[in-house]
Nucleic acid binder design. Structure first.
Lengths: 192, 192
DNA sequence: CACGTCATGTAAATAGTTACATGATTCC
DNA sequence: GGAATCATGTAACTATTTACATGACGTG
């Protein structure tokens, strides 16, 4: 019987969300942490393995040993009933303001310190990264869009679809913003 | 003569950006870290004071002791020439992909695990926080918009304006996305 | 046979938060 | 007289990254 009030970290809920969709080994959790959810949360395996142990100690996940290729026993993790309850409670829980950390905007906030040509180049590179992110999201959405599960709010694909839609919208907005900034830089150049 | 290749952290560049605009005490840096730049970077005073020492050891800032109200000597920090160069080089430097961490999207990615009414309530609360952020950004932009400095790419106000504009655009997009999600939830409810 | 993938761990370092500590001045 | 603000620092903890460690199997 583990401590029931043991606070789970954000990483813990990211892992629970992953395991609620499908059981996985720690290695697979690390893989899935890059691709599907890496757009809004990331973690390395060195953080994931200890967190899986904490989740297990709290009774939110459990594992069984299976055949595998590693030098140590391969463990397949599954979310428990308590884990599902904790995840659902967290999803609808209070929204404390999260500390924002956006390196891109932090750079642009000091862009006045470089000459306009360098600024334009920077914004151009930013634009390119947003364009490639947009294309990745569009491709991923296209892959699942036909599935009727994406229309059912209790199907994981519904949540995949709405989060991808959010990513697409925000990348498009970022692209428009970049184009706007380049226009602002160019207009200042003419009137300057 | 400090080590010239000493790597400066992101926090260091946030502080340099602040001091490049105006010299400040550590206390003021902590205040300014909330309001103007807190929309994209945050830090507490316990992180700021040691970082100012590191920046000084690296020759990027310097201080003079002034009259002040604290129990210890009050220090006013100023960016050095080397500090300005380091800041400018960082602004236009390589863009390594930054690890994303968005708690809001992480929650929504598991929203399939709760019932549609609770999901709708969650999205409603998200909407409210985006609306208030939008209003704050609009008010801040209105405060500076009249200043002709906002049109000059080498004036800090230009950078303040374009970053606020980015914040406004992304909050508006988030609001539209929230409205879209509520519509999706409602339409599933009808056909469900 | 070298390289990539499967597979799980630990160690050491940096980054960031929360809490502790001190003391003067101003405002209610 | 108590609370807020000015002002700077340290200690302890949590979160995250980078690097070290091991070893089997399949592919070119």
């Amino acid at each position: 019987m583990p401590a029931p009030g043991a606070a789970t970290s954000n990483l813990g809920f990211a892992i629970l969300g992953l395991l609620a969709r499908r059981e996985s080994t720690g290695y697979e959790v690390a893989q899935r942490m890059r691709q599907p959810i890496g757009y809004f949360w990331t973690a390395r395996h060195s953080q994931i393995y200890p967190e899986l142990n904490r989740l297990e100690a709290a009774g939110l996940v459990e594992h069984e040993v299976i055949d595998g290729a590693g030098p140590r026993p391969t463990k397949r993790y599954r979310i428990t009933g308590a884990g599902r309850e904790a995840l659902a409670a967290w999803v609808v829980g209070d929204l404390e303001p999260q500390p924002v950390r956006d390196l891109e905007v932090l750079r642009l906030w000091s862009v006045w310190a470089v000459d306009p040509a360098a600024a334009d180049d920077l914004v151009g590179r930013l634009e390119a990264t947003h364009r490639s992110a947009l294309n990745r999201y569009l491709a991923e959405l296209a892959e699942i869009a036909e599935d009727p599960g994406t229309r059912d709010p209790s199907n994981p694909l519904f949540a995949s679809r709405i989060t991808l839609e959010g990513g697409i919208r925000s990348q498009r907005t970022a692209l428009e913003w970049c184009a706007w900034m380049r226009a602002e830089l160019a207009s200042a150049e003419r009137h300057g």
